[in-house]
Design a protein around this nucleic acid. Structure first.
Length: 945
RNA sequence: GGGCGGUUAGCUCAGUUGGUAGAGCAACGCCCUUACAAGGCGUGGGUCACAGGUUCGACUCCUGUACCGCCCACCA
């Protein structure tokens, strides 16, 4: 390494390596080994990267790289999603800015615009994913609306229809009056809002009185077709069967008894509007009430109301809308109606009321239950199988608790409304004759052929498109070439791992399982699952646990964390394009306070490592920028450690030629042993989906063991050892570092590749890229228990000496003598064997053994078991500091002693606890007592000076 | 209303079958010791939300409470 890039600069290495990897085709399946596949959750093709993608990709890439290095034939399938509503909305907004609506343009022209937009912005997200280091196979990139996938969508639709699992029907749906489309239940968000409850008097037709109904939606009274009461309600029993004359419309409607009514709630009388309320719709069915739709697709009151027969929706009669209401938007109608009721005296009262308001997740407007024709998937039969495969463990959720969420949803799943009144998406493969007959088929020709429809009969294709999630549900198999029986499908399906947020378990995971088990079968006919494991993660939030959102102004862009961003740019980014521009000031202030220097360029590796460290299962991830800085420092640490190793090994004999002309010292044998243990822990971390643990183990090993202990001990070893010992240490420095790099590569791909390339020759390994090298596997035979024990002893001695130095405020440069006494024979041997190591790490000028403990001069003292370690006071001077230090030590020991004594004097403990536990405590007590005695004597001695 | 998760150091989080509470960051003290000041060495800091119970022993198991968050259903 040259001086000019001495410190770690991620920008200098990251994009460079990615380009090389991609160009050389390293991301593609090797064609050898067991298959291992992951499907990327397809991001919106026109979208841009957010922290969720960052986390997601970090996890997937760790597994793909780990498995690739472990010899698997890995496929990480790339692709993007057309994201129907979201994308269409963006393009419509752009058009609106020029004063044009999509209807002005017409379907063809509008779709051209959307495709243009896709071409223009479609590369953003995939370029950003590259910045994350994700080793996805871009050569196989798919788009949900490309030809092959569209064909799969069509095929699934047709087959489900043939199986009787897709049907078309008129029903109440969740209608978005802004987007002019139906949406599924899942796309409706029910948020609590404060509103009012209005009480209205409805007069009995016979003039004998009135009923009072309560409602949160007064305007729907224009479509009331009954008032319902509880059959057992004594207040109203006599009125059942009588009629009401509805104010304003004058419509005469019955009073019915229905189980839906809770007589304890409100007035016990419920107005029934079958066309605009899901519950009322059910009541209407039971009571055979006519259905009156009062709104158009904009939720504006119609000029004429049609009464439809219940169930059949046959036209019964028409009623003109009361003239003052026709053409009013729903909330204007509400306002006017309330005013009229008040004026006419049938408004009884208004009470404040909190209620759940349904809003479209995209548009944010209040959803209107609305009667339309839509296509549905009959989900119950599909759900049964989908539940079974999870129950039987063919799919495992990590963490497991999400299975319950999945089961409970699947158990009372509702039919899935799949048609959308949009233009951007897969057009529904159904054709209509002019007289309204409907035919489903792969194309118009097939429909004609199959149904003997003459060529002069006009067929018109359904205008609607399918819910985006319909194509997403096929993702694991459509991307592999289904419905063709491709080799890829055979090799890579079922996929191994799905990494996704809990928020789309219903939208996506459940539907993938339903579709896959229905369409993809093993050779023996049993259903295949889309994936074997679902790794479910939480939301990535800001450091305070707040959801990241534009309006809160707390969004962090992964790219900014990688490349850095100055404060002004960050502020500008956070404050432009706000829904509510008034928030800008507040956001600016908070941003300037939180990041006074802007964001540093931390690099991809540090960003990824931060995600791993926070990836404990099942909870949301609070992204703390303090941590990313720590991991950037960690990268720098590794960088510099490599720098040291290279400096000391390049051009030197590192004993890599196969001769055994080298010897290994204690530190060498220790670090090799520890390496095996860490390799094992890494394997366990991956296997248990605990990347937080794996990353922590690795961090600790690299920083605290390899750098702080091993390299520090390599220094004296290289200086003082004989030639064979030097060779042994160089060999170990190199080989352990090389293993560390491979071990860390799935987590921090760039820095490991950069360093590995520089040292691979020294390590005697061959290969073009670290990402194609084998992942390290623990070898228990390389663990040397004696070395581990000896080293642990040495660490304790050095810690003791460092404690004395630290507490005495000794200058690190100041060397002191150390005298050892009173220990075991083994202690004596260990001291003699490790004089150099002890001297170096504890800054000793000498380390001598004294058999006669009485010959020790007045000293600062620390104990390692029975071994006494003394630093003569003459070299320390500070008597009071040593007294204080001893005091602290003694107090600590006494407290422990006291605890142990009371424990051991408890007969119940001694009787009932396992013998080995009791013995252990007894040993500790004796040990502590001895130490207290020794230190107390020492204290007296010092005090007497 | 039903269900799930969380509550551990100032902050963000670990804590494996119950047996001496850990990390990073922040804080404090001493150091520019030639891999690294994006660093080194040392130090301080926790009634493990609360109350009961089981147990010789509970951060850990059970019951309940409080607070925070989420999911589902929903009373007009």
């Amino acid at each position: 390494m040259s001086d000019d890039n001495k410190s770690y600069q991620p920008a200098n290495i990251e994009q460079n390596w990615y380009k090389i990897w991609e160009e050389r085709g390293y991301f593609a399946p090797s064609g050898q080994g067991d298959s291992y596949s992951i499907m990327i959750p397809p991001p919106n093709v026109t979208g841009s990267l957010h922290m969720g993608h960052g986390f997601n990709n970090a996890v997937m890439d760790a597994y793909i790289r780990y498995k690739r290095m472990s010899g698997c034939n890995t496929l990480w399938q790339a692709g993007t999603d057309h994201a129907g509503i979201a994308t269409q909305m963006v393009v419509e907004r752009q058009l609106a800015a020029t004063g044009v609506s999509r209807h002005d343009l017409g379907r063809e022209k509008f779709l051209e615009k959307v495709w243009d937009w896709k071409e223009q912005s479609g590369g953003t997200i995939t370029q950003q994913i590259r910045r994350l280091g994700s080793s996805v196979d871009w050569t196989r990139e798919r788009f949900t609306m490309d030809e092959g996938l569209s064909k799969a969508v069509q095929e699934v639709f047709v087959r489900l229809h043939e199986d009787g699992l897709i049907y078309r029907g008129k029903r109440l749906v969740n209608w978005d009056p802004k987007l002019h489309t139906a949406i599924s239940d899942l796309e409706v968000l029910n948020e609590e809002e404060t509103g009012s409850m209005w009480y209205f008097n409805y007069p009995l037709t016979d003039g004998s009185g009135h009923l009072t109904v309560a409602t949160t939606r007064p305007e729907t009274m224009l479509g009331d077709t009954a008032v319902a009461v509880d059959a057992t309600d004594e207040r109203y029993q006599a009125l059942i069967g009588k009629t009401i004359t509805l104010p304003i419309t004058g419509r005469i409607i019955p009073i019915v008894a229905d189980e839906y009514v809770d007589k304890e709630f409100g007035t016990g009388c419920v107005k029934i509007t079958p066309a605009h309320d899901f519950n009322d719709y059910e009541v209407g069915k039971r009571q055979n009430l006519p259905v009156i739709n009062i709104f158009d697709r904009d939720a504006i009151v119609l000029n004429n109301f049609n009464l439809l027969e219940n169930g059949t929706f046959k036209f019964l009669s028409t009623e003109p809308c009361p003239v003052d209401y026709a053409g009013l938007e729903r909330f204007a109608a509400r306002k006017q109606l309330i005013a009229q009721a008040e004026a006419e005296g049938w408004l009884v009262k208004v009470e404040p009321h909190t209620l759940k308001v349904p809003r479209g997740d995209r548009s944010g407007v209040v959803i209107e239950p609305w009667l339309t024709d839509q296509w549905y998937v009959s989900t119950k039969p599909l759900a049964e199988e989908a539940v079974r495969v999870v129950e039987e463990g063919h799919i495992q959720f990590v963490p497991k608790q999400y299975e319950n969420m999945y089961f409970s949803w699947m158990r009372d799943i509702q039919d899935w409304c799949i048609s959308r009144q949009l233009w951007w998406g897969h057009r529904i493969p159904a054709w209509y004759t002019e007289d309204g007959q409907v035919f489903v088929g792969r194309d118009e020709a097939e429909v004609r052929a199959k149904n003997n429809i003459a060529s002069d009969v006009v067929l018109r294709q359904d205008d609607d498109v399918l819910d985006t999630w319909f194509s997403s549900a096929l993702w694991t198999f459509s991307t592999l070439g289904w419905p063709e029986n491709t080799p890829e499908l055979k090799t890579f399906h079922s996929t191994d791992l799905l990494v996704t947020g809990f928020d789309i378990i219903f939208f996506w995971v459940a539907r993938m399982i339903m579709m896959t088990t229905h369409f993809i079968k093993n050779e023996d006919g049993t259903p295949q699952v889309p994936f074997k494991t679902v790794y479910v993660h939480g939301l990535v939030r800001d450091g305070e646990g707040q959801k990241m959102s534009k309006s809160k102004g707390n969004v962090l862009d992964p790219i900014d964390l990688i490349d850095g961003i100055d404060l002004d740019s960050l502020v500008a980014k956070r404050t432009t394009g706000l829904m509510n521009p008034k928030d800008a000031k507040k956001i600016e202030k908070a941003t300037r306070k939180e990041f006074p220097e802007g964001l540093n360029a931390y690099g991809t590796d540090a960003l990824r490592y931060t995600f791993y460290s926070l990836a404990s299962t099942g909870r949301d991830i609070n992204f703390d920028t303090g941590r990313i800085e720590g991991f950037r420092n960690f990268c720098n640490k590794l960088w510099n450690a490599a720098n040291y190793v290279l400096m000391n090994c390049e051009g030197q004999d590192c004993a890599q030629n196969g001769d055994d002309n080298y010897t290994l010292n204690l530190a060498d044998r220790w670090i090799i042993s520890r390496l095996q243990q860490v390799e094992k822990a890494m394997a366990e971390g991956f296997a248990s989906y605990r990347l937080d643990i794996a990353s922590q183990v690795l961090y600790d090993f690299i920083w605290n063991e390899y750098c702080s202990w091993y390299i520090e001990l390599a220094k004296p070893a290289l200086k003082n050892g004989d030639t064979n010992a030097q060779r042994g240490t160089r060999r170990t420095l190199i080989r352990v570092l090389e293993a560390i790099l491979r071990m860390a590569h799935p987590l921090m791909p760039f820095i490991t590749e950069e360093i590995w390339q520089k040292m691979k020759d020294l390590a005697g390994t061959q290969g073009d890229s670290i990402m194609l090298m084998p992942y390290p596997i623990a070898d228990d035979s390389k663990i040397d228990p004696q070395a581990l024990a000896d080293f642990e002893w040495m660490q304790a001695v050095i810690d003791g000496l460092r404690n004395i130095r630290g507490e005495m405020n000794l200058n690190p440069g100041k060397k002191v003598p150390a005298i050892f006494t009173a220990g075991s024979e083994q202690d004596k041997i260990r001291v003699a064997a490790n004089t150099v190591f002890l001297s170096t790490l504890a800054s000793l000028e000498s380390a001598v053994w004294q058999d006669d403990a009485t010959q020790i001069p007045a000293s600062a003292t620390t104990l390692v078991g029975k071994l006494e370690v003394h630093v003569p006071m003459a070299d320390i001077i500070d008597k009071d500091a040593e007294l204080a230090r001893l005091d602290k030590e003694i107090t600590k020991l006494k407290m422990e002693t006291q605890k142990l004594e009371s424990k051991l004097s408890n007969a119940a403990f001694v009787d009932k606890a396992p013998a080995d536990v009791v013995q252990k405590e007894k040993d500790r007590l004796i040990d502590f007592a001895e130490q207290v005695e020794k230190l107390s004597k020492q204290k007296e001695k010092i005090a007497g000076l």
